[in-house]
C-alpha cells in the first residue's frame, strides 16, 4: 500500500527501527551470499590462475635463460675444443709435413746419388767397352799393317797376343 503522506520514522531516536535494522542485516547477508557464491570464487580462481601463469612464465623464462647460458657455455667450450683441435691438427700437419719433407729430401738425395752412381758405372762400362773395341780395332789395324809390311798373314793366336801386349804397353 502506498502511503499518500510519507512518514518519518519516529519509533526510536535518529530514525532507528528494529525492522529496518533487521532488513539491512538481511540485505548484507544476501549481498554477501550472492557475491561469495557467484563472483568471488571465479575472481579468485582467475587471479590465482593468472598468478600461476605469470609465475610459470617467469620460471620458464628463467629456465630458458639458464638453458641459453648453458648452451652458450657449451658452444663456447665446443669452439674452444675446435680451436684447440684445429691448432693441434695444424701443428701435427706441420710436423708431418716437415718430417715428410726431410724424408723425401733424403730419399731424393739418395736416389740422385744412386742415379749418379749408376750413370757413372754405365759410363765407365761404356768407356771400357769403347776401349776394348778401340783396342780390338787398333790390334786389327796393327796386324793388318804389320802383315802388309811383313808380307805374310799374322792371324794366328800368337800374333794377336803379341799385338795386344804391345797395345797394353802403349797404354
Amino acid at each position: 500500500m502506498i502511503i499518500s503522506q510519507a512518514q518519518v520514522l519516529a519509533e526510536l531516536p535518529l530514525g532507528l527501527n528494529p525492522l529496518l535494522f533487521l532488513a539491512q542485516l538481511v540485505n548484507f547477508g544476501i549481498l554477501y551470499y550472492i557475491l561469495n557464491r557467484f563472483a568471488f570464487p571465479a575472481l579468485r580462481k582467475t587471479l590465482d590462475e593468472r598468478t600461476a601463469t605469470i609465475r610459470e612464465g617467469i620460471a620458464n623464462a628463467e629456465e630458458a635463460k639458464q638453458s641459453l647460458n648453458k648452451a652458450n657455455q657449451q658452444a663456447q667450450g665446443i669452439i674452444q675444443q675446435a680451436q684447440q683441435r684445429g691448432q693441434q691438427i695444424i701443428a701435427d700437419a706441420t710436423t708431418n709435413g716437415e718430417r715428410l719433407r726431410v724424408q723425401y729430401e733424403n730419399e731424393a738425395k739418395a736416389r740422385a746419388v744412386e742415379v749418379a752412381e749408376q750413370n757413372r758405372r754405365r759410363m765407365a762400362q761404356e768407356e771400357a767397352q769403347a776401349r776394348n773395341a778401340l783396342r780390338q780395332q787398333v790390334a786389327d789395324l796393327a796386324i793388318s799393317a804389320a802383315g802388309r809390311v811383313v808380307g805374310e798373314s799374322l792371324d794366328g793366336p800368337r800374333q794377336r797376343r803379341l799385338v795386344d801386349e804391345f797395345i797394353a804397353e802403349v797404354e
Binding site: 502511503i3 510519507a6 512518514q7 518519518v8 535518529l14 532507528l16 525492522l19 529496518l20 540485505n27
Partner: peptide, 30 residues
C-alpha cells in the same frame, strides 16, 4: 530529517527511501 522516510508499508514492515537506495546499491554491486 535524520530519519528515513517511509514510502509504503508491507504489513508492519516500513519500506523507506534509504531501504530502496540500499537495494539499488546492492543491485549495482551484484
Amino acid at each position: 530529517e535524520v530519519g528515513p522516510n517511509t514510502l509504503f508499508t508491507i504489513g508492519p514492515f516500513p519500506v523507506t527511501n534509504t531501504l530502496i537506495a540500499s537495494w539499488i546499491s546492492m543491485i549495482i554491486v551484484i
